[in-house]
């Protein structure tokens, strides 16, 4: 069960950030070749990311690359570069249908075979950025066994919906649709970026909301947001204590051959045990909430 609370965006054309971002320790690092790179620097960013992916310092951290859409002049070259460089996950922007994922998957497999990489070792994620994408979220989420998750991308989505970012009301349906699709497909769900770095309270309010909804995590645009996010996702001491007792009761029940056990009069079954294990995993990753 891979933790994916924080996915840090890095502009692919920035040599300094690409060389040092591993020190911030997000759960995943996402090198961006799409919107963060100007048209005349697409070739340069592609090569920078190609070499950055091969740095030994990134071996212990999940690497993601947001490529340009495959229907642009840059998408196929991006994909060629990052699959050959060994990226863990390719993020496809502007995914409107399952067919977009299927086209991507076929192309990834072709490159894996061409360069001798194990077929299937490149994982995928799809970013949903339009009304069509939201409507098709379930078929997108189930389009490939390579998918590790789907993400809602807020800016393009609200443009498509002819509205703008506000208190979250404008994203309510899309968040619920993307999240339900991800859960039905048993993959991860990622929320939109929070772009106002100076509004820490607003960021934490949104993190609290998406955590309670059930998102795995959020895309981030600044390293300053990582610790805030991890702390917000960290369980309280009481939650950790209870989770430990649940897991202990489950182990004891298993030893006695019982399918269901009780703890302080409450039934402890598989979903409760799974939740307890997730709580302990988050506590192990970043301690208890401060």
């Amino acid at each position: 069960m891979k933790l994916r609370r924080s996915m840090l965006f890095l502009p692919g054309a920035n040599a300094a950030m690409l060389s040092t971002a591993f020190v911030y320790k997000p759960d995943s690092i996402m090198f961006d070749l799409e919107d963060a790179v100007s048209l005349r620097e697409k070739d340069a960013a592609r090569l920078l990311v190609f070499h950055a992916l091969r740095l030994p310092v990134y071996r212990g951290i999940e690497t993601v690359v947001r490529i340009n859409p495959l229907n642009t002049p840059f998408g196929h070259a991006d994909l060629e570069a990052v699959v050959r460089a060994g990226v863990d996950v390719v993020r496809l922007p502007k995914t409107d249908s399952a067919e977009d994922v299927e086209v991507l998957e076929r192309e990834v497999e072709r490159i894996e075979r061409a360069c001798g990489r194990e077929v299937g070792s490149t994982r995928l994620m799809a970013a949903i950025e339009s009304a069509s994408g939201v409507i098709n979220a379930l078929s997108i989420a189930k389009a490939s066994p390579r998918l590790i998750g789907i993400a809602l991308a807020g800016f393009d989505y609200v443009m498509d919906m002819q509205t703008e970012r506000g208190d979250g009301t404008e994203l309510f349906y899309a968040r619920c649709a993307v999240l339900h699709a991800a859960r039905a497909a048993k993959i991860d769900a990622f929320d939109v970026v929070w772009s106002d770095l100076n509004d820490e309270a607003g960021f934490l309010k949104e993190v609290d909301l998406i955590k309670r909804l059930g998102f795995n995590g959020k895309s981030l645009i600044n390293p300053r947001q990582i610790e805030l996010l991890h702390n917000a996702f960290a369980p309280t001491e009481e939650e950790v204590d209870y989770a430990r007792r649940v897991v202990a009761a489950a182990i004891e029940g298993e030893r006695k051959g019982l399918g269901v056990v009780s703890l302080n009069g409450k039934m402890v079954d598989a979903p409760v045990i799974d939740h307890a294990r997730r709580v302990l995993q988050r506590a192990e990753a970043s301690g208890t909430r401060k």
Binding site: A15, L18, S19, D43, A44, L47, L48, F50, H51, A52, R54, L55
Partner: peptide
């Protein structure tokens, strides 16, 4: 870093 040198020369 060396990786940036390679990338820039190649570009």
């Amino acid at each position: 870093l060396d990786c940036a040198i390679r990338a820039r020369v190649q570009t």
